[in-house]
């Protein structure tokens, strides 16, 4: 701060643009709109316009060539009767379990164990090395993860090789090829991909918790579980909200891993809305129908996000009142 004060003082002699003379009231100052201009134009071109256009296209029939034909709500009616659509949203629930529920729950325990038990009873370096191991899958491009796992789960892949080696060859399986095991297999991969994110965020969050809280609790004879419930969970609730929200949105949008692992198959057992929309757009060339799928997905995501944010505000207000 002091450095930039000095810097400003030095700048005094140099001529400056004439805007913003003196300590005038800043609120509502029109000149600031200029700074928003490039961002606003880009936003309108890349997000606003396309979003509205998709909304419009969802009311049309169009193959991408020629002019769209307006058909009203026909696409949405078709969605209601489309078993693939319902299946894809059921699979979204599975993705939420694999990408939100399990990673957040395991992440909380793991972060607490790494921070509270391993970080303090062993060297911090041990905890950091373990954290890095859990975080590593987050680093690689998710498509690369999908391709490696696709090979591991192949009939002649490493998982079956491992089962053979430990004498469980009878369990060998075409994990991604069988409609009964494909979804659980994909869920397992997503847990592996996702687990490091909550661990790292929660461990960072725990660093701002006052260590005296833990020490006091320990002196009072609180065991690990009590400290976890009474201190860790309430203290890092804001981060838990953020992780749960961002992961839920990511789970509802998941595309890359599905594309790389199964392309929604077999028999739509692992199809998800975003892949279903992609396939409808670019393989079936049903742009109107694909737009309807995307629009429904968008609306659901927005509603879920708003519900999350409201729940968070409520929780904060409750804490403030208490």
């Amino acid at each position: 701060m002091a450095a930039s004060d000095a810097l400003v003082t030095r700048r005094r002699a140099t001529p400056t643009p004439k805007a913003g003379r003196g300590p005038r009231r800043r609120r509502g100052d029109a000149a600031y709109w200029l700074y928003l201009l490039p961002g606003a134009v880009l936003f309108a071109l890349v997000i606003g316009g396309p979003l509205l256009f998709t909304g419009y296209l969802s009311l049309t029939r169009w193959s991408g060539i020629g002019d769209p034909t307006f058909v009203g709500l026909e696409n949405y009616q078709r969605l209601l009767d489309d078993t693939v659509f319902w299946q894809s949203f059921r699979n979204t629930l599975a993705m939420i379990v694999a990408m939100v529920v399990v990673p957040t729950a395991v992440g909380l325990v793991l972060a607490a164990v790494l921070f509270d038990t391993i970080g303090r009873r062993f060297k911090p370096r041990t905890a950091n090395a373990l954290r890095a191991a859990f975080y590593l899958p987050q680093v690689l491009p998710v498509v690369v993860a999908g391709i490696v796992w696709g090979w591991i789960l192949r009939p002649d892949g490493a998982l079956n090789g491992l089962l053979d080696a430990v004498g469980l060859g009878a369990l060998s399986h075409d994990w991604l090829g069988d409609p009964d095991t494909a979804l659980p297999a994909v869920m397992g991969v997503m847990i592996w991909v996702q687990i490091g994110y909550p661990v790292v965020v929660f461990m960072a969050a725990l660093q701002r918790v006052d260590p005296e809280l833990y020490e006091a609790a320990e002196i009072d004879g609180a065991g690990w579980a009590r400290r976890f419930w009474a201190i860790t969970l309430p203290q890092i609730r804001p981060e838990t909200f953020v992780v749960a929200l961002t992961c839920t949105i990511a789970a509802m949008k998941v595309f890359g891993p599905i594309y790389a692992l199964t392309r929604g198959g077999p028999e739509n057992a692992t199809n998800v809305p975003s892949y279903f929309a992609y396939y409808t757009f670019f393989k079936k060339l049903q742009v109107g129908y694909g737009s309807a799928i995307s629009t429904v997905l968008t609306l659901i995501i927005v509603v879920v996000a708003l519900l999350f944010i409201r729940a968070q505000h409520r929780a904060e207000r409750r804490d403030g009142g208490a």
Partner: peptide
């Protein structure tokens, strides 16, 4: 938060 599918075809 938008899914990119809701932008991708117009883009």
């Amino acid at each position: 938060m938008l899914p990119q599918e809701s932008l991708v075809y117009p883009l």
